[in-house]
Design a protein around this nucleic acid. Structure first.
Lengths: 195, 195
DNA sequence: CTCGATTGGTAACAGATGTTACGGTAACAG
DNA sequence: CTGTTACCGTAACATCTGTTACCAATCGAG
């Protein structure tokens, strides 16, 4: 072998650069050169780590999924009751702070990029299915006597509410501040008998 | 004057072309030439109608808003009771048919394009505020004894749910078919005491 | 120490993109 | 009928994009 190069670390750093550009400048400015500049390297390194642009995006997309999964796992493990767990997991999907606003922008950018890109779309569907199963499991734990159909319907509603609220809040933080998002989530959970 | 040219009609046709490209090929394929091809004209006409690309996108974005506003107005006028009105208006925000799936893709594309584009973002905020006021008004009509704060919170929740469901369903129509979306909305409305 | 392999930067290339300049053409005014 | 003016297609331009080819630097193996 030759030089010591921590490939996974570099790939993670490049993925981070993809996030930064995506959250800060939008999808159309997401170019190889912009990513390289954000990562503090040249386009050469980028193209040595990833065969082409799509591979870079797909890796960054997977890493985003992995990061949120780890965070949600920790939240779920730390919660005392199923109710707390469900609420905490849904709260982390909201755009309650600057970091989450950026993350929602990134999520939105990837979703928009998935239009007309089957592989990206498949990645989204897989991640979303895991997310749906998790919320369904938590709902079932809080309401053990519900039918599977009602659990699925309510889980869908909660996911739509949380993702939709994060999207709205990211695009208009003034109209939907953290306290408003939080109150809305609690109101929804209470109405559904889950709080 | 010279040749007869129905400018508004052409602008609308070009906006429709923007719409088609955005829904069918995604945001990164939304180029002047692609729009011209979809509209069946040349890039010359496009650049004669609009000073630059951004103006074209902004106009198309406004037209999308206008179209949905007209549709929602009609639904609200046709409804017999406030409850029916609220339900009908929220249902049209879902992705219940192929056309609405495409429209959601377009909405998503514009939202992603608004990242890092202040003018586009301002347009989104204005449209969203009108949407929020409308839903708030309908909720208040169904539940006249609620406080203004509860009305606002519930309206936010309903908008987030509908928009989120439309987004999820557009990206994964198999997992979230029309019947599932519809059932979810009714479940949410019932839980909130609005059906 | 030397050779080879690996790493990563430089620069070039082909293609696409937004935009502009120009020319022909059709309709209306007189 | 004719001149003028709005209309719009053609083609060029400069720029930006993804991608590739090439080369210098660096480190481990023998």
């Amino acid at each position: 072998m030759a030089r010591k190069a921590d490939k996974p670390a570099q790939e993670a750093q490049l993925s981070q650069a993809v996030w930064d550009v995506l959250a800060g400048q939008g999808l159309d400015r997401l170019t190889i050169r912009a990513v390289a500049a954000a990562a503090g390297c040249t386009t050469g390194l980028v193209m040595h780590r990833f065969p082409h642009r799509r591979a870079l995006l797909l890796h960054a997309r997977g890493l985003l999924h992995e990061r949120t999964r780890a965070r949600v796992d920790a939240l779920e493990a730390d919660a005392a009751t199923p109710r707390d767990s469900l609420r905490a997991v849904l709260r982390q999907a909201l755009a309650l702070n600057e970091e989450k606003v950026g993350e929602t922008f990134v999520w939105l950018g990837f979703l928009a990029a998935a239009v007309g890109d089957e592989e990206m779309n498949a990645l989204h569907r897989a991640k979303n299915q895991a997310w749906r199963e998790r919320v369904s499991r938590l709902v079932a734990a809080v309401a053990p006597d519900w039918t599977a159909e009602r659990v699925a319907t309510v889980a869908f509603g909660l996911i739509a509410t949380a993702d939709g609220a994060a999207t709205l809040a990211s695009a208009d933080p003034v109209a939907y501040p953290p306290a408003t998002q939080s109150a809305m989530l609690d109101t929804t959970l209470t109405a559904l008998g889950l709080s």
